[in-house]
Write a protein that binds this DNA or RNA. Sequence first.
DNA 1: CTGTCTGCAAAACGTTTGCATGGCG
DNA 2: CGCCATGCAAACGTTTTGCAGACAG
Lengths: 139, 139
Amino acid sequence: MRGKLTKSQQKILDVLKSVEGEISAQEIHHILRRNGFSTGLATVYRTLKSFLLQGLIKERITVDGESLYQLLNHSHQHHFNCINCGKSIPLPDNNCPINEAVYKSLLPNNFRIYYHTLEFFGLCESCQTLANDKKQSKV
Amino acid sequence: MRGKLTKSQQKILDVLKSVEGEISAQEIHHILRRNGFSTGLATVYRTLKSFLLQGLIKERITVDGESLYQLLNHSHQHHFNCINCGKSIPLPDNNCPINEAVYKSLLPNNFRIYYHTLEFFGLCESCQTLANDKKQSKV
DNA sequence: CTGTCTGCAAAACGTTTGCATGGCG
DNA sequence: CGCCATGCAAACGTTTTGCAGACAG
């Protein structure tokens, strides 16, 4: 894939564009199937990997071990993730603290940076109270 | 597990303490086996999940989909990750831009934050040249 | 005794790969 | 005609789960 996209690749890109936030490979696959395309799951994965290497999309792995993808030109989000229930709550995106200056100060310049992820982990409100009630995961 | 640790759990904690940086569940398992303990892999996973929920350790999922664990009181590291070859290069940890003030400004206070991850993704030097040579992943 | 922790093996899950087919230049 | 992309199914590696037995309080 150099420049031109195949039909399948174009359809996958369309789905990515149509989605507000992040989406998984399997969801893309379902949407395509639902819309009558016989695209295989493997093609979705292969295309996403290719998009990723071209710096077109970003990838984020959730607490549940699933990869979510998002177009890079979309406004990016960071999240709070509950390590107990797996809930992932996007933070207001207006004030991401990672700007050009931070990039430059932290990273050697022989890397080509496509994107970053900033994620917070802990317990959400309800999982905190569950933990306090000791009903939970004494393990 | 409330306060007191079982033998297995203590041994797993010891391994975490003995390691400078991050370590995978499987590596912990191997080390225990090598040292003559018959600890099962499932126990390692179960214990790590419990440690995680107690805020004892942090978890980071690599580009290859493997979880790495690290004691939370150890100095934390951020990384540059090559999306092509999977290399993960730790950044100088002295100046993490995510401090208390940033936490407070970004996050609602009904979450209990245990830790954060900040990761940069892109192409490392050698993968950039490979990409330029077009020998690579035209997909 | 009772309840939790453990090891083992099997299952689950998301993802990747091999291979034969198909489509496009 | 040749080459790359595709679909399918099988393979893969990590993590989770079910279960019976071991252990501790």
